[in-house]
Amino acid sequence: MPHRGKTSSTDRLFGALANPTRRDILDLLLDGEQTVQTIADRFDMARPSVSEHLRVLRDTDLVREEQRGRHRYYAVHPEPLVGVRDWLSPYERYWRARLTDLGEVLDDLAGGEQP
């Protein structure tokens, strides 16, 4: 399988996303921005652990933080995923199109078999 030349940012993105806890955090943030404490409570984790995960996500720009008053709020920033999606999507797009074509073949077959 040929590898792409540009791997560094993609590698970091993979690394960030390879961790199930970080994916769960992203999933939670999709419901809206959260503070570290809220995330820690939600996952029953110590705040430093959450902060470390958030740091990794921030480094890949998947999450952005904003200081408001005494709290920092974290929100999903999905744009870095554009490249990831564009890279994988040929397969999924391909198979979706095939399954749609299969449906048309089935419709034809069934139609042709009506007495």
């Binding site: 399988m1 590898h3 792409r4 791997t7 993609t10 590698d11 993979f14 996303l17 390879a18 199930p20 994916r23 769960d24 992203l26 999933d27 999709l30 999903v76 999905p78 995923l81 990831v84 999606r85 890279w87 994988l88 397969y91």
Partner: peptide, 20 residues
């Protein structure tokens, strides 16, 4: 890399992230 990517993107919650 392709596999890591596939696994990552197809894991839980990804459809929502892609929707976002």
């Amino acid at each position: 890399p392709t596999a890591q990517l596939s696994r990552t993107i197809m894991g839980g919650g990804w459809r929502r992230i892609l929707a976002a």
